[in-house]
Design a protein around this nucleic acid. Structure first.
Lengths: 205, 205
DNA sequence: AAAATAATTCGACTATTGGTCGAAATACTA
DNA sequence: TAGTATTTCGACCAATAGTCGAATTATTTT
């Protein structure tokens, strides 16, 4: 139980360090020092450096993902709007830990890749059921026309996660926007949704 | 130019080793030993371990990608068919280096993330222009209706690469098939393409 | 309160490995 | 043959994730 406090201390330390460095450049000793504890203690709370990162990602995305899930329950709001809100949740959560590191392209080591990989998996895993549910409701309400809600949800999430992270296939802001627009357009046309339903997504990056 | 021989020797060594191990478990000395040369020589031909991996991926996907590009030029074939053939090229190329390590799902942890990341980037980078071109031709010919060909190409490639690799979000075969089907369906409906245009894609995994 | 036990902390130490270096061997050139 | 450029090599270096057991602190038992 008192574990949690120290655990969070360690996560705080890593988060802080991540604001100015890549995970690969951060040593465990550094995390320990920043957290104000000895290196050995780190391994009392986490089995590996990777585990710390994983825990941090989980902690960071807990909040946005939870609100996203809550949104899904608001069945008085139109499915489009809720879907759009999920979009936004993605955007927000992606910028949280990932934004800093607009890739200097060449520093791609195994370790550096991990955070992005984890993010992608986490996001899709967590949001797919929620988004599927929303789509299903939209279908039932006759507002969305598509017969593979789960697949649709996954497609949307994959494209969003990959493009919003902008690590896997680094692109200019315009390219990212173009692809997102394309996705929206494809969704509207592919699901018989009135054009413009997702307009508000266009705005901020 | 005599370089190439030794270079390939090194790539062969890595490829061989990759059949039974992940990259992170393979040391440079091991590659050297397998290639029958000294460790120092490795760095005469490649600047880093990562560069070797990159070169290997490139070498492996050269062939399928080239044929894919040739296909794009065959303007006597229908755009759908060509697109479908690109799909197939993806499928084939993905299985090449990646199939072995279709992770027993829960053995999770830090596998060789890098190779998958590299594969994704490589595939999208290489095929996006080609696929875009095909789509543009289809649009011009009035067979495809969509106004963001490049975005469409990228979306398709991202989803395919992520799902066919099946590393980023490990899923059952059925789930993969479901998502691919969803993508096809979304494409058909979203681009005004007659249903069934991509039917032959359904068949083999 | 004392003793015994359990939980926690720590940093010196180990093992591993990517990459460097300069000297030696080999191939070319004149 | 001498001289130059290319190629080869493995001992060496630096960095760092993770180990270990001794020391400290907290908790329980008697």
């Amino acid at each position: 139980m008192p574990d949690i406090k120290k655990r969070n201390q360690i996560l705080d330390a890593l988060q802080h360090l991540l604001e100015s460095k890549e995970i690969q450049e951060i040593t465990v000793s550094e995390i320990a020092k920043t957290a104000g504890i000895g290196k050995g203690s780190i391994y009392y709370y986490f089995p590996s450096k990777e585990a710390i990162l994983e825990a941090l990602i989980q902690r960071n995305y807990e909040q946005p993902l939870r609100t996203a899930k809550n949104l899904a329950a608001q069945s008085n709001i139109s499915p489009f709007t809720r879907m759009a809100m999920i979009f936004q949740a993605c955007r927000n959560s992606s910028s949280e830990l990932l934004r800093h590191r607009s890739s200097p392209a060449n520093l791609r080591t195994h370790e550096g890749t991990l955070i992005h990989q984890k993010y992608l998996e986490h996001l899709v895993r967590e949001l797919k059921p929620t988004l599927t549910q929303i789509i299903e409701q939209g279908i039932k309400a006759g507002e969305i026309h598509f017969d593979r809600p789960a697949a649709l949800a996954e497609i949307v999430l994959i494209v969003l996660a990959v493009k919003l992270d902008n690590f896997f296939i680094p692109s200019s802001d315009e390219e990212i926007e173009e692809t997102i627009q394309g996705l929206i357009s494809l969704l509207e046309k592919g699901t018989g949704t009135p054009e413009g339903s997702f307009n508000y997504l266009t705005s901020p990056l």
